[in-house]
Simulated scan of single mutants.
Amino acid sequence: MSPPAVISLKRATLKYGSRTLWQDLNLEVRPGEFLAVLGANGSGKTSFLKILLGLAPLSAGQVMLDGVPAQRGNRTIGYVPQQKNFAQDTALRARDLVGLGVDGDKWGFRIRGRAYRQRVDELLEQVGAASYGRIPVGMLSGGEQQRLRIAQALASNPKVLLCDEPLLSLDLNHQKQVSALVGRQAKANGTAVVFVTHEINPILEHVDRVLYLAGGRFTLGTPAEVMRTEVLSKLYGTHVEVLNVNGRLVVVGRPDSLHDGHPDVELPGTVASELQGMPGQDNS
């Protein structure tokens, strides 16, 4: 028997004024499942995370996290924000940043004893950051900083890990390393992962299902079910080509009359960035 879902949405609808981002979404995410959320800017990906975090209400429907309504400050949720580098002169050490995930929710003066230090050491080791734990975060690379954010998010042993574009500004090598960290967390610890991204290729081997948002509609299924020419063409209401280039997915197309009437909106960067650097492509 499958374990009960830790994320459950029933007939979930989100609207802003007269604009519908998505409606009648029924979704269950179970322990250890890796769900990728894809779509263009403005399609509701980050809003989807805000709903799960209890930071924004649904327009209609229900959302439950581990059996209770979504609410702010839920310690069963770990959150990895969009990648943004610290200033180079930031003096905060790597281990201190991770430590904020251990006791950062407590008020007042704290005596950090052996248990605290051991937990921070465990988290640094878990994400492969033990070697630079005492280095100021401003001196670390973007990939190293993102490992620390993941460690911080895992500090409470969350049942759900929400990742908001965690691969932005990272090179391909660091994208794969961060993706592997999150993928291992899902499978080894039974953590349900919701991973918002423009780019599916770095996470493709870890993804169980894809939620693709576009033009007020959505489609849901395995990568093989969703990332197909006929499926995305139906979703966008215009022809969209999905190609497999040396084992990497490339989406080609320009949906018309979508996104609040703005024509010639570039296809969301699911994997459109894979076109960069390919022969014959104008990347200006």
Rank of each mutant, 00 (worst) to 15 (best):
Q83K: 14
S18N: 13
A94G: 01
R254V: 08
H259A: 02
G142Q: 11
I135S: 03
V271W: 02
Q175E: 12
L65P: 05
S257D: 07
R11F: 07
Y16S: 11
L148V: 10
G253C: 06
D171M: 09
L53I: 12
Q126A: 15
A70Q: 07
V98A: 07
S8W: 06
G261M: 09
A70F: 02
Q281S: 15
G101I: 00
V68P: 06
R209I: 04
F48Y: 14
R149T: 12
L161W: 06
K234A: 14
E122V: 03
R209N: 09
L140V: 09
L168Y: 12
I77A: 04
Q118E: 10
E274D: 10
V207C: 13
V242G: 02
L21T: 01
E230W: 15
L181R: 06
A188P: 08
M64V: 07
S273C: 09
L162T: 05
Q62L: 10
A186W: 03
S233P: 03
A60D: 15
V226E: 05
L27D: 09
H259C: 02
N41P: 08
E125Q: 15
L168C: 13
H198F: 12
Y212E: 01
G44I: 08
K234I: 03
R19L: 14
D105R: 14
A87T: 09
A5V: 07
L267G: 00
R114G: 04
G78N: 07
P69W: 14
R217M: 01
T90H: 07
S8T: 13
V182G: 00
L14K: 06
G42P: 08
G113F: 03
P202C: 08
R11D: 13
G32S: 09
L204A: 08
P263Q: 05
L172N: 12
D66M: 10
V178G: 10
E230S: 12
P31H: 10
D89E: 15
L232Y: 10
N189C: 14
V193F: 07
G133M: 10
K45P: 06
R11W: 13
